[in-house]
Design a protein around this nucleic acid. Structure first.
Lengths: 336, 336
DNA sequence: CTGTTAGCGCTTTCAG
DNA sequence: CTGAAAGCGCTAACAG
């Protein structure tokens, strides 16, 4: 066993295939990217040799030369928030279908981190999807002019976006509660930077006004179980008999917080969540606004692919609407 | 408005910075990668110019030249399975902390797809984490010799791996059930290719043998809510009075299936889940084996970074152990 | 400390 | 239809 320099099982390059097949490197390249430019026999022979050698085109080298990286990036505020996994999954699948790889970023609800991640990705992707972005419009616009960019649940004019319109669902929730006899409803809000949050809050206020109900609001700082939990006392203090929560994680926390201070749901208080994602399994099963996050993920990816194909920057605004799913967390208010 | 060729706001290259700063390209490069090799003033001047021009090193070009891509890949069987999001999140965060980008792949429980994704990633990453891989040992070994590879919940000798050892938790579950008076326990199994599944099944069998209980098993083909649901009848048919399910998604399905055929839990039948991830919110709250998926994700990433640093391929086997969390889905069997 | 010189692996005119 | 040659943007010896 001499210390002969083991040539380190290097990945075969286009050059090796070329000499082995007795053609030029250009021909090998074309055998993979533009087979139509070659005689069928040549293509066949080259491919065969390549296969035998276990050759795989080097994506990175290719990207350097063409600018086409074959990658996308998706950034979400919180991977572990149950709203996002179906979205992520669908986006990944759609990307994969078109032979793209997907980078995933978790911004932790932090605009600065989101910006940093975006910067890291930008150099090696052909496009980006920002889900529930916490960046401000200016930052988004700035990035959008460097790379194709699609938004989910963020409404910036001129930038392709897919929006899950929960306003319809929230209005239906208010109607539902009004019909049950509630006179005052409180909105437990989520992150201020969230478009969905603003949309829901506003829809609630308007629907209440229309129906002649009182509308209050309390803030669950972060959209977490704990945030919902902590807001329970404040929610009750508003005097409302029903709450609509920003999302189901908050709603679930609220449920737990109410249980802790012995407020029976739905006997004494009604709760409605948003994004039907865990609501079937809560106790009680939660009345909620339906969810289409997987569809949103897929649509955004498809949009991005379209933008790449047709450089036309048409102002797309893809809206998915929602409805109310009535379960067991809502009932008539007591003592009225 | 003449059609003067707008030079397409191209990203500034190292060359532009070099001429603007009156130095060579090598110097610019070094100002970013090896500032210690340059005089402080030069570094300063170059960086200033670069900043003014908005120069960002091109990752791809750098990777082509150095082989260091600054990327990792993580592949999971199902992003939407609640076991994985915390793991993904933690892994992403850990990678980000070391300035790495993370590709995410979803294998859909399909070995062929997993292999394909891996192939796609391999060319542009420095290492890979396979969580609950469905590949066979040979395939894993093959990939591991091309790139640093870390496994989660898969025990292949010689390959760095982090294992969540649920055997302890399952044994505790059996003890718990035995103490309650159960004489026969059924395991509702998950994917055959899953190491965790084999481990849990085996732990259950052994613990039952030790405690003198009967052990049965029924298969929930896919580890889904529906799979658990469908297995309800078969579970009851075994004559057992308690079940331990592969994971909580299956357990939750089982709960729903049992409810549908009017089997009261825990009155008539007890259920234990695995991976404490949604169990606090089921009805009834589920007795379960604790979960450490986030820790596993972070540990795997850290391991990968270590492997990269010290090319020492020591045979690491990082084990996280578990315990039983008793909640409301277990009780003494009726009529005994 | 800094510049010169070769590439990394692949694509892409431009000629034949 | 195929080959030769010139890069993509950056890094890495090797000289000074």
């Amino acid at each position: 066993m001499g210390d002969e320099k083991t040539p380190r099982h290097d990945a075969p390059t286009i050059g090796r295939v070329a000499t082995m097949a007795g053609v030029s490197r250009a021909t090998v390249s074309r055998a993979f990217t533009r087979p139509d430019m070659l005689s069928p026999e040549t293509v066949d022979r080259v491919r065969k040799v390549a296969a035998k050698l276990g050759y795989t085109p080097n994506q990175v080298a290719r990207a350097l030369s063409t600018g086409r990286h074959g990658n996308f990036a998706l950034i979400v505020p919180d991977v572990a928030n149950p709203f996002f996994p179906p979205l992520i999954r669908a986006a990944q699948k759609r990307a994969d279908l078109s032979d793209f790889c997907l980078f995933l970023g978790n911004s932790d609800e932090d605009p600065a981190l989101e910006d940093k991640l975006l910067g890291r990705f930008l150099g090696q992707v052909e496009g980006v999807v920002l889900a529930s972005s916490r960046l401000d419009d200016a930052q988004i616009r700035r990035h959008a002019e460097r790379k194709p960019l699609v938004l989910i649940n963020r409404d910036v004019a001129g930038i392709p976006r897919v929006l899950i319109d929960t306003a319809g669902g929230v209005r239906a929730a208010v109607d539902h509660l009004a019909r049950l006899g509630h006179r005052s409803i409180v909105y437990v809000s989520g992150p201020a930077a969230s478009w969905s949050n603003r949309q829901r809050r506003q829809a609630l206020r308007q629907a209440c006004a229309t129906a002649g109900l009182e509308a209050a609001a309390v803030a669950a700082q972060r959209p977490t179980f704990e945030g919902g939990w902590r807001s329970a006392r404040a929610v009750i203090a508003t005097g409302a008999t029903a709450a609509v929560a920003f999302d189901e994680v908050v709603a679930q926390g609220l449920l737990a917080g109410l249980a802790e201070i012995d407020v029976d749901v739905p006997g004494r208080f009604s709760v409605v969540g948003c994004d039907d994602v865990i609501s079937a399994t809560t106790t009680p099963p939660m009345t909620t606004v339906s969810n289409r996050s997987a569809e949103a993920g897929e649509a955004a990816m498809t949009l991005l692919l379209d933008v790449l194909r047709t450089r036309a920057v048409s102002d797309v605004r893809y809206v998915l609407d929602t409805h109310l799913v009535v379960r067991g967390s809502t009932a008539a208010p007591c003592g009225r």
